[in-house]
Design a protein around this nucleic acid. Sequence first.
DNA 1: TATGAATGAGTCTTCATTCAT
DNA 2: AATGAATGAAGACTCATTCAT
Lengths: 183, 183, 183, 183
Amino acid sequence: MSFDRDHVLRTTADLLSRKATATTEEVARAAGMSRATLNRHFPGRDALVRALEDFGITECEAALETARLEEGPVEEAVRRLIRAIEPHASLLTFLYSENQLFEGDEQNAGWSRIDERLTSLFRRGQEDGAFRIDLSAAWLTEALYGLLAAGTWAVTEGRVARNDITHMIVELLLGGAMRKDAS
Amino acid sequence: MSFDRDHVLRTTADLLSRKATATTEEVARAAGMSRATLNRHFPGRDALVRALEDFGITECEAALETARLEEGPVEEAVRRLIRAIEPHASLLTFLYSENQLFEGDEQNAGWSRIDERLTSLFRRGQEDGAFRIDLSAAWLTEALYGLLAAGTWAVTEGRVARNDITHMIVELLLGGAMRKDAS
Amino acid sequence: MSFDRDHVLRTTADLLSRKATATTEEVARAAGMSRATLNRHFPGRDALVRALEDFGITECEAALETARLEEGPVEEAVRRLIRAIEPHASLLTFLYSENQLFEGDEQNAGWSRIDERLTSLFRRGQEDGAFRIDLSAAWLTEALYGLLAAGTWAVTEGRVARNDITHMIVELLLGGAMRKDAS
Amino acid sequence: MSFDRDHVLRTTADLLSRKATATTEEVARAAGMSRATLNRHFPGRDALVRALEDFGITECEAALETARLEEGPVEEAVRRLIRAIEPHASLLTFLYSENQLFEGDEQNAGWSRIDERLTSLFRRGQEDGAFRIDLSAAWLTEALYGLLAAGTWAVTEGRVARNDITHMIVELLLGGAMRKDAS
DNA sequence: TATGAATGAGTCTTCATTCAT
DNA sequence: AATGAATGAAGACTCATTCAT
């Protein structure tokens, strides 16, 4: 069977987002191969993490494209966003929890670009009068990350059904973000 | 000066919630002592993590007492809760991200008790008609953890002012949780 | 070349019988490998000592079989015994000096069995009228251990030629154990 | 209570002759004091070992004086020797097992002097025609050390009564050493 | 003087990586 | 190309020693 790079990266993100201290052995076993083989494809742990970052950024940017954040009402854009990005939540969670480690890196540029697009979306919501202005766009962005992570864990622990989690996140975030008197 | 156990535990929680892979050396230095001394008081890294769990459970339970969750309108109880628990957020964040470890332990009993009290609070909100019923109490509990973690990181990264974070969390969570047509 | 477990154990016994405080590094180097590799095969110093005990028991039991202790005159059986067991003397010496450790363990059962067989041999000598009865069988057994250890050290320090040591031990032990008036 | 140097040294010799890897903590507790206090009197582990060596040499030399090795028949001299030196056997055992560690040291001079006197005694026995010449004087000396150590252990483990051990050692050694046809 | 507490030094163990098959 | 085995490097732990009381 040929080497399935995507599968390895997703499995690794799942594992590392739950257990940041997982050893290379655990990562390799979770991906169904030996340490040595994992090392052949990703020479060094750092290389694996970089690959994860690249992969995560690529996937998230694709999701952002799919969601067409700039189009239509903000509320609908947020719904599309969460629906598109939720499948990659564990990858995003991993990037989120690791992003203080590679500060100043070129990877950070990709990450910042994503972060900026999300923040812009929420800022647009505020400018449109749809979103409250006392909850800053930066906070809404950060809260989205937190809720995606919480959603992943809630599903993993069986507290929320996989099919419900997108709705749960969307409604909580929009409910909190939107003005109550919006007509 | 005598050994300040609380100080050590708080410092350690701060560090580990930001960098789960921190070495014993880093932990000890952050607490202002040598590795050997840290080891004298907490024999082994596991012992330190266990102590953090005990400490976190104790602190959170004290915060829950302070918040008097069963009293008055749910909305106010949630506000009191977040205000009381936010100072311990980094501890909670660490425990939250680590809570897959030591499963089945007696520590878990303490943690489950806290979790149950929070879930009860949200369930009461739903029974009172104040909270939406399509967002389950279990999810609101999990979301609270996620927002506390996001808040901690947002403050650490300078995206949100420390003085604002309680408001940000409260408003987002309550805004999302409460029924829109509540009179 | 494949890993030679016997070689490692023999080398280790040689070293530890001379210097009980030898570090893992010294043990590994004496066996011609790195600490890490030694640890791969014997995870932890205790595991190595346990393996030495198992190995020693096995080797000694084999030597006891070879010596056919129950056959022929006791004097000849003792000669065969010492001849058979002397090559393993450093292993035995190490175990002898360490045998207060791991008391009550299953290892001790194996050791006790050997001890019992030796004691039985000397008891037979007394019952046959060949050995003095004022020197107890238990003491003769213990003395045998002491003389084997002394022999190992005497050879190591160059006080006695390797080829002579069996004779030295045999003659001293038998000379002391046998009745003077034996016809 | 005043500090009892002799008691500490004897206790330490007892412990170290049985367990060469005993920690300073164990040594101090066996002597009935804290690590720190032991260190006050013997600054550093080496200092303690040196003191033990000095003490052991002094005690052994005193025992040798008492035994008047040069006087009378060799057989009687050996009996007096073992009777005099047996109470210090654990000290001697410790020195014996440690003596490869401080090679070339000045301490070694004292030890060698003792060793030489013992060897001379056995050589005299051979020259007198009382002892066999196929068992070298060096070996008999070494065997004496081994039997003293074995005797100490045999008593500790309850295999031989304390009151019998001198007889056991004497008879075994003399029986082995003496010519059978000695009239 | 005696001791609990603190720590530098050194040992033990594990991990990420490389190598031989 | 894939893997079990070997190992340097790094982390965790323990000990002997020192210090403040």
